[in-house]
Write a protein that binds this DNA or RNA. Structure first.
Lengths: 331, 331
DNA sequence: CTGAAAGCGCTTACAG
DNA sequence: CTGAAAGCGCTTACAG
């Protein structure tokens, strides 16, 4: 910058503090003009190094190509952008495939805040983050007894509603296909299923429970679901506890030439284009993705800006959308 | 660090240059031990400020919640991660909604490289990036006469193949539903459609062309498609030129109670769960997403590491997957 | 084999 | 109203 003016003044002006610091209008104008002409853009590391702020949020999801997390990421980016933040993301792949610690990578880059769908292996890092009082919010699931803020769905109620709906429509042998995991959202969905059966005076049968490991390939999951269904012809309804399981489940049913609705009732957790538009349309427990994302960003920004936090833990209501995959079995 | 040793030595050791610089094994061991105990993590801004490297790639897509871009983002993140890079992403939303310049935000944060699905408004910034010799690769589309590297599909051939397939199956009144845009991938798809008709001695009729603006809401798009189909009962086949248009198109057809396959043949660009698993399954031109992502990252890393670049422009082959939405009309 | 010093490009008290 | 100087936490010639 060839203007005869100190870097101090330039810094003040370019950060919009010219007026406040009583820099003369003339100098302000000159600096702004030149900065513009030279296409000057301040070095953000230098800035961050000095101020400690990065204006970057770290987002960790299972898999950004999954409908739920992709849409969540979109909302998060949009919201963050509204407040001048950008987002860096990592896929945890539920601890599969990657041995390295995703969260650590983001911690190294010093995010201003962290939005995390946690896996069990992240616990130590999450505790460290809490220890360092870094802004953080967990999404989709959380850890019991860990003092972290979070935004989740009332998963228990969601699953319970599914069972109620199945029973109301006359289904009697309701299976659940879920993941083998200690993650709390899945545990709660499972509890909701069990308690739903009990509430409706139906027996809980372990043979109607299929738990699938995360680290399988899609076709293996499809195979397992096919075998499970084949071996239990008594099943007249299935609750899939996730987007992904539901999609692969539909593939399994198609392979088995089992007709959804006609042969078997189906409800899935999470909505997506396939569930919405396939025929028959699939009844789902839909999550308020927009609200989850917006709340998460708001909580993070409140923490960053040290505003008072009104609600630390947000549990949103599930929404049962009834379509054609659960026709009445009463006669 | 309380070890009696200079920061210089610490820096050398922690960057793995201890041996090379002939630091004594004893000192190396001591430093590593203490770094470990103190959970020491070097400040990345300081590092970046000094070295000019961020180990961060910027990714700009239309919309990360879109199947194509979400899956692409996943691959990009995985590949980048393999080489120690993280990725920061922005949704361009095809210039809708956001007035600000997405690319500028990333440029401010000094990405080591840029992977961009460009929109027209980005052109000036892209030229600047080229000017500054920043590693960059365009994906999905590019600008004619701009000397940038890119990875795209042979969109022309893809559309041409669709028309060929329709004709082969006996369809005569093939409509195209595409976006109103100057983006080159869409232009090429349109050209492929036109030339496909000509090649097959079918007339090109402007009334069978529907171009839809990007900045519409989903339900508006659905409405427009519905009206278009209603007003042109002659149509016996439709080529949707994107994922998104295809999904909304299926919604329109459902609303109109038009049966895919029975009433009308359908092919969409891009594959997804809905097209794959709905019944009837939708025939698609699928893009090799994995290859696009891997190539893009490789090209960027080659540029960053100043390796010789073998291919600067990669045009991948489309893959026509024939399912049930294009049954034979010959009799 | 190891360390002192400079410097990356900013911002922020502080001085005048 | 404006500027000199210190310092954020690293790395990298350079010296010894």
């Amino acid at each position: 910058m060839k203007t005869k003016v100190s870097v101090t003044t330039v810094s003040i002006v370019l950060n919009g503090n010219g007026k406040e610091r009583k820099i003369s209008d003339e100098v302000i104008a000159k600096i702004e003009k030149e900065a513009d002409e030279l296409n000057y853009r301040p070095n953000q590391f230098a800035k961050s190094l000095r101020t400690g702020k990065t204006f970057t949020l770290g987002l960790i999801v299972d898999d950004i190509s999954n409908y739920f997390f992709g849409h969540l990421a979109k909302i998060v980016e949009e919201e963050a952008d509204n407040y001048g933040y950008t987002v860096m993301f990592c896929n945890s792949e539920n601890d599969n495939g990657k041995t390295k610690n995703v969260l650590h990578i983001l911690m190294d880059k010093q995010m201003d805040g962290y939005i995390i769908a946690p896996t069990s292996s992240m616990l130590p890092d999450i505790l460290q983050l809490i220890d360092e009082k870094k802004p953080m919010v967990l999404i989709d699931r959380f850890f019991k007894n860990v003092p972290a803020m979070y935004v989740t769905l009332d998963n228990y109620k969601g699953a319970l509603n599914c069972v109620d709906h199945f029973v109301e429509r006359g289904y009697k042998n309701i299976a659940i296909i879920t993941n083998e995991t200690e993650q709390i959202q899945m545990q709660e969905r499972f509890e909701g299923y069990k308690d739903g059966l009990e509430k409706n005076k139906l027996p809980f049968l372990t043979e109607l429970v299929k738990k699938i490991y995360f680290n399988l390939r899609d076709h293996e999951v499809v195979n397992q679901i096919e075998n499970f269904i084949k071996e239990h012809s008594v099943i007249d309804a299935i609750l899939f506890t996730s987007n992904n399981l539901g999609i692969l489940g539909l593939e399994s049913l198609r392979n088995l030439q089992k007709k959804v609705a006609t042969d078997i009732g189906v409800i899935c957790f999470d909505d997506n284009d396939l569930f919405r538009l396939s025929s028959p349309g699939i009844s789902v427990i839909s999550q308020p993705i927009k609200q989850i994302g917006k709340n998460a960003v708001r909580i993070i920004l409140d923490q960053i800006e040290k505003k008072e936090i009104h609600k630390k833990r947000i549990v949103l209501s599930p929404n049962l959308i009834i379509r054609d995959s659960t026709p009445s079995r009463n006669n």
